[in-house]
């Protein structure tokens, strides 16, 4: 059985951060030209960075949400960069942001085909409704993530809080699929 190495690719990391102070969004709006702020539509201000390519939502309460980065590291540096940009342009920031990673979305390829019909019989906490969605939805208890498995052997893993969790989850799943004989290689 030619077992190929599983390639995991992190697609998106969502981090939240708080500055513990009120921020005047319209002041930011005046200084920066590349931000979006339409209080009638959405109370947050969208601050887009070119590098790393992320979008950060800034709220008047001083809380921020950073989306679009490809790693934990990148998410942290993106938030820091946004804060630095604000400081450099005369917005007073009193403290360092407290950053928490909220969600990681990753994709992976197990390199073989998965028998979804058999999997739904053998596994717990799964849902497979081919009439509605071609993937099998598997809610793993530990680590607590949700995975979408496809017949092609590709999968999407969401809900992880750190990169280690993603690796653990994919490895655990791969091992289980092989033990149960639910995955086969061409």
């Amino acid at each position: 059985m030619p077992k190929r190495k599983v390639v995991i690719n992190i697609e998106n990391v969502v981090a939240s951060a708080t500055l513990d102070q009120k921020i005047d969004l319209s002041a930011i709006m005046k200084v920066f030209r590349n931000v979006e702020y339409r209080p009638k539509q959405f109370p947050g201000l969208v601050f887009r960075l070119k590098r790393p390519k992320t979008a950060t939502l800034i709220f008047a309460s001083g809380k921020m949400v950073c989306t679009g980065s490809k790693s934990e590291q990148q998410a942290r540096s993106a938030v820091k960069k946004v804060v630095r940009e604000l400081q450099n342009n005369g917005i007073i920031i009193l403290s360092k942001p407290k950053i928490v990673i909220q969600n990681i979305v990753a994709s992976a390829n197990l390199g073989g085909s998965i028998d979804l019909e058999e999997a739904v019989r053998r596994m717990e906490n799964v849902m497979y409704e081919p009439e509605q969605f071609p993937g099998l939805i598997y809610r793993m208890e530990d680590p607590k993530v949700v995975m979408l498995l496809f017949a092609s052997g590709k999968l999407v893993c969401t809900g992880a809080k750190n990169e280690q969790m993603v690796r653990e989850a994919v490895e655990k799943l791969h091992k289980m699929l092989e033990e149960e004989g639910l995955i086969y290689y061409e």
Binding site: S113, I114, D115, L116, E117, P130, E131, P134, G135, F150, A151, S152, Y184
Partner: peptide, 13 residues
Amino acid sequence: ASELKLTSGRGPA
């Protein structure tokens, strides 16, 4: 077809 795993991930209808 189902023995050849052609139905996996395909809508039954």
